[in-house]
């Protein structure tokens, strides 16, 4: 088995698994009940899926300039994608959106820190 064939198989496996994660995230966005769980599905799978797809493309292109550019894209995606998810979820929490969770109710933002305050 030559190196090209091996390269192709590895990259195909990586890309297919990446696509699987992205698909799982998309199904999660549609099926899950509330904002935070959807954010969980979208944020985590999106980062991992995109990283896997880019890794597969890198394997396919070998040691070239294209590979270097893909590595940079992967690096920036690795930084920005979780940050964006964090920012969105954090903004929702700050705005007072409660997660949908049986009997448990999350405390209002600020209430957890200053418990004596009877503002609300």
């Amino acid at each position: 088995m030559s190196i090209e064939v091996l390269q192709m198989f590895i990259s195909a496996a990586l890309i297919v698994s990446g696509v699987f994660f992205v698909l799982a995230g998309s199904i999660g966005i549609i099926r899950l009940p509330d904002f935070y769980t959807r954010m969980h599905a979208a944020g985590m799978t999106d980062t991992l899926g995109a990283e896997l797809v880019i890794l597969g493309l890198m394997v396919q292109s070998g040691f070239t300039q294209t590979s270097l550019k893909l590595l940079l894209i992967a690096f920036f995606l690795f930084l920005t994608s979780p940050t964006a998810s964090h920012a969105v979820a954090n903004a929702a929490h700050q705005a007072g959106l409660k997660p949908l969770l049986g009997h448990f109710r999350a405390p209002n933002p600020g209430e957890a820190v200053v418990e004596e305050e009877e503002e609300h």
């Binding site: 940050t83 964090h86 920012a87």
Partner: peptide
């Protein structure tokens, strides 16, 4: 600050941008 993560990442990214 609730924006701590954002600030750290932005500080890394803005020079690169």
């Amino acid at each position: 600050s609730p924006h701590l993560v954002l600030r750290v990442v932005a500080k890394m990214l803005i020079p690169l941008i």
